[in-house]
Design a protein around this nucleic acid. Structure first.
Lengths: 66, 66
DNA sequence: TCCTTTTGTCACATATATATGTCATTAACA
DNA sequence: TGTTAATGACATATATATGTGACAAAAGGA
């Protein structure tokens, strides 16, 4: 689905802390991590920057078997 | 801003043709190419797949000086 | 010239991303 | 035990992405 949770945990951030850093509500991060919806490009870019990675790593053809 | 127009033209597609392929309205492609809004992740992925490229290439830190 | 395609733009409608407030559950820790 | 932090989930409201229909301007080909 995506690797937001994985990268967030690697940075020791809670959903709330990450949400604050990228300027959205905690529920928004929760729903994205659980694949319940489809974030905007701007938010994807903010998440990638805040997590020290890039769009492809977080969202491009994530290998679900890992 | 992004490189959708560049990749679309390289493939010889009109905005309408690309819009049909990814299942959105022509106006949506037009607005994205002109940076007038902020597409959803799913649409970004569809565009990247249809244009034979990936998220980072189309949308990540595009060098405007080119 | 004329005809067609492409592009930019407008107004209006609809779907959905996101916010806000709240509650329940679990884990960690005093 | 009790308390706090973290997470998942719900209802409702708002902002905005996207659709639809239309028009004008520019470019290319007959």
């Amino acid at each position: 689905m995506n690797r937001v949770r994985e990268y967030r945990k690697n940075r020791g951030l809670s959903q709330f802390a990450l949400a604050e850093k990228v300027g959205v509500a905690r529920q928004t991060v929760n729903l994205i991590e659980n694949g319940k919806y489809n974030p905007s490009l701007k938010l994807c870019i903010s998440l990638a920057e805040e997590l020290g990675t890039d769009l492809n790593t977080l969202f491009w053809k994530v290998d679900e078997t890992k």
